[in-house]
Design a binder for these strands. Structure first.
Lengths: 336, 336
DNA sequence: CTGAAAGCGCTTACAG
DNA sequence: CTGAAAGCGCTTACAG
């Protein structure tokens, strides 16, 4: 079923049908209704590829999970952001194309090429670590890109991130105000925009409050999984000296730490208090419920869609938007 | 940059370039290498839409979240399945097209039309509730479809689901063997393949063990969110009489129930034991850690990809595959 | 081993 | 208000 058939059935030209599909004004009302009815009756649907080929517009947004060790659909934080993004960009009429990371044309991991290949109109790039050069290529291309937690610098790029410095200072401040002075840090052994910022800011905040930075109380997990947080916490415990409070750069890591402490009969928050970051769903149900710095996933995803849309359509000047984090007090950080 | 330019640069015909791209055998090695080098140098990438238009193959798999109240990217269980699916289907060379549910051509929610529109080669359909007729249309079309937790009956469809009857009997059996006799049920107020099966099987299992089914101990949440499980549990508590154990059809609901009980100083498992279903990550960190019936998300997602691939390529006879669930014992169900 | 040409299903100036 | 025709960038018999 194609446009030609419809034209024939209606006794009009292909051009006329095309104009009706695309809502051109200069079509007789009677003709329009007649053609519309026929299309409806036979369930005609224009071919996307033909349209894309003719117009260079695909109505598709590419989603790329950047980095060697990308989070894909496995990190609850990014999934939530993406969920909000999908909802909003859907309202604006776009569908989403998830590039598989596994395989591609002649084995090359070339995002820009893939975007051209599918003629996507814009991209959302989700942060990962060890970001490949091909992401930079995409970033600096003419394809509008919106980054989540990844600093994009291209002329047609913008990015969103929580205020990561503030996240750390929030945590330290809350510890301080709750009477904690001996504060440790559970970080991650990978070079990421986000985690690096949080660690630097953590130290600055410690300094600001005149608190001692004790490197014995710093421990690092291998990746973003809860299991790795567990391992990292066990390493810290094994060292013998424990801080009274720990800031974990991510809820997932905090959960792992919680499990390690439970195993070692270390009571939270009585022996060691802990604050995470993200406000994953599971924070409400953990033992104890996790005090955390909330990132507004809903807002970030929605804003990303809106900004990308503007960049695609009105050549809006790309910007960076920093979203405010928020302290959510639960049970894992009492008072010292 | 198109095939014509490459042909001109290499001094060969467009047809020859096309054959090289598609790895035809009947091309001179020298020619081939020369053209390949040029494509590489200029970073040429064939246009997907032109290729699709010419071949009717898009290398795209559509993902549809069925149902009025679909789970989209918000239900951790389906996200995990999808994650595994994406990884495997990516290895097989496909990218994923997520249809936005929000809006479409002339406001119609017609999945089949959308699939034709994009010429997707196959679809994965994720269960939701109040499934629209348009999903049935897609199911009974010639497009290969693989369902997750949704019974597909079309000639080119297959589906995967955990053995939901067994899930319930596992739970009841474990309760029974742990000494519990007064068992309640936390279900969901929506007509879904999965939840209906679990409820029916729950009652059958209760009968099998000669246990009393007390309707006072049945309570239903409005949807799949933890918050709704919380509300449902509060309703049950308000009725005054509590069972000694509860089977929640979903971990998310169980988490909500956990919170409600904590608020009412009901100890788990001392006062009321609970078993969930899914084995979400959060089960490990909840208070207490949740005993659950695990669905093998990894396996289901991977199998779905493999089956869909076979259906697309070798016209494999569609099948239904039932995946075995597995009891995971943690702390929420001790001994009575 | 290589190429000319028709065709895939649309859109878009342009002419009337 | 409507239509003829070129063009988008590929693939694929078919001919040589």
């Amino acid at each position: 079923m194609n446009i030609k058939t419809i034209a024939k059935m209606a006794g009009v030209s292909v051009a006329t049908v095309s104009k009706i599909i695309n809502n051109y004004a200069d079509i007789g009302e009677e003709t329009k209704q007649r053609v519309l009815k026929i299309m409806n009756d036979v369930g005609y649907m224009p071919s996307s590829s033909a349209k894309t080929l003719a117009t260079k517009k695909s109505n598709l947004i590419g989603v790329v999970f950047a980095g060697q060790l990308n989070s894909d659909l496995s990190h609850p934080y990014f999934v939530s952001v993406l969920d909000a993004f999908k909802r909003q960009i859907g309202l604006l009429g776009y569908d989403l194309l998830f590039f598989s990371n596994e395989k591609f044309f002649r084995e090359k991991e070339d995002y820009l090429a893939r975007c051209r290949h599918f003629q996507v109109e814009g991209c959302i790039i989700i942060a990962g670590d060890q970001v490949e050069p091909s992401v930079n290529l995409l970033d600096s291309s003419d394809i509008p890109c919106i980054g989540i937690d990844i600093k994009l610098t291209g002329n047609n790029s913008a990015y969103l991130t929580s205020d990561n410095a503030k996240i750390s200072s929030c945590a330290v401040e809350h510890f301080y105000m709750s009477g904690y002075r001996d504060i440790g840090f559970l970080g991650i052994n990978r070079v990421t925009e986000v985690t690096t910022t949080r660690e630097v800011a953590f130290k600055e905040a410690m300094n600001m409050f005149g608190l001692n930075i004790n490197s014995d109380w710093f421990t690092y997990s291998e990746d973003f999984e809860g299991e790795s947080g567990y391992q990292a916490m066990k390493k810290l415990i094994a060292r013998g000296s424990l801080p009274r409070a720990i800031f974990a750069v991510t809820d997932l890591l905090a959960f792992g730490a919680l499990r390690a402490m439970k195993e070692h009969q270390i009571r939270v928050p009585d022996d060691v208090a802990i604050i995470g970051c993200d406000d994953l769903l599971a924070c409400q149900y953990s033992d104890p419920a996790l005090t955390t710095i909330k990132q507004d996933k809903e807002k970030i995803g929605k804003l990303a869609a809106l900004m990308l849309y503007d960049m695609i359509n009105q050549q809006m000047d790309p910007k960076v938007i920093i979203v405010e984090p928020e302290l959510v007090v639960r049970q894992s950080c009492g008072g010292a």
